[in-house]
Simulated scan of single mutants.
Amino acid sequence: MTATLVNLNTKPTCRVRALNPFSKEVIFRQNTLVGKAEDVENIVAIVAEAESEKVERVSIRRVNVSAEAAVSEAYEEADAKEVPDHLLDMRKRSTEGKDIKQKRIVAGLLKKYSDTFSKAEWDIGLTNVDEHSIDMGYAAPIKQRPRRVPMAYADEERKAIE
């Protein structure tokens, strides 16, 4: 569903565009929850497009927005002491110029999702779940000899390999 801006004081209903990217048909029934409403504090710009006449018009009499979806997501807060050690530098860099509440929210997010971030250089691991290819256009692949590691980095490379 596309983002839609609505002034609830003047127009409590609006049209929204929905896209079904799947081959299975989806039917919106009355009282179906289709979106999340959030308060907008600052509108930077509005870009309006004329609606295409090719779009099939569907009429729904009423769509409920649940109380959970009507309010913006509440974030957990935490103290800086609760942030894991490997994320302290990230917390410091990302909270420069923020007020205390925002700093506590960032600390809460870092605490909640701490297992998402790497703790050390080599703890990420490998995966064979997905493969990728590099599109080279019409260029033929080339082969070059490996380049020698500069002597200044030889010790670091040896440590990493060990």
Rank of each mutant, 00 (worst) to 15 (best):
K24M: 07
Q144C: 05
I124C: 05
S118D: 03
P146E: 10
L110E: 11
E157L: 09
K98R: 10
R93V: 13
E53V: 04
M1Q: 04
Q144F: 07
F117M: 03
L33Y: 01
A67D: 11
T10W: 00
K119F: 01
D39T: 11
E73N: 03
R93W: 06
A50F: 04
S66W: 00
N7V: 03
T10C: 07
Y113M: 13
K98A: 05
V6Q: 10
K112W: 05
T127S: 15
D155Y: 01
S133L: 10
T13V: 02
K112S: 11
T2W: 04
K54V: 06
T2E: 07
S23Y: 04
A74K: 10
E157C: 12
V106I: 12
N42G: 02
K11F: 05
A152S: 08
T10L: 05
R104H: 11
D85F: 04
A3S: 15
N31W: 10
V129C: 10
G108R: 07
L33N: 07
I134D: 01
Q102R: 03
Q102N: 07
T32P: 00
E25D: 14
R17Q: 12
S118P: 00
G97T: 10
Y138L: 13
E38I: 15
A152V: 11
S23C: 02
K119P: 05
V40E: 06
I46R: 07
P146L: 07
E38M: 13
N7C: 09
V6H: 00
A78Q: 06
H86E: 01
R57T: 03
D115W: 12
E162V: 02
A69Y: 04
A140Y: 08
D123M: 05
Q30Y: 02
P84C: 06
A50W: 04
R91K: 08
D115V: 13
N9A: 11
E77I: 14
V65D: 00
E76K: 13
K103R: 06
S72P: 07
V63R: 05
E38V: 15
M90G: 00
V65R: 03
I43N: 02
N9E: 07
I161N: 08
K119Q: 15
S23L: 06
A50L: 10
E49G: 12
K98S: 09
C14R: 03
A67C: 01
E131T: 14
E77C: 09
D79K: 08
Y138K: 14
R93Q: 14
M1P: 09
N31R: 12
M151T: 14
E82A: 14
S59I: 06
E56I: 01
P84Y: 14
I60G: 06
A152T: 10
E68W: 00
A50V: 01
L109T: 04
A107K: 00
I124L: 10
K101S: 11
A140Q: 13
R104K: 15
Q102V: 02
E76T: 09
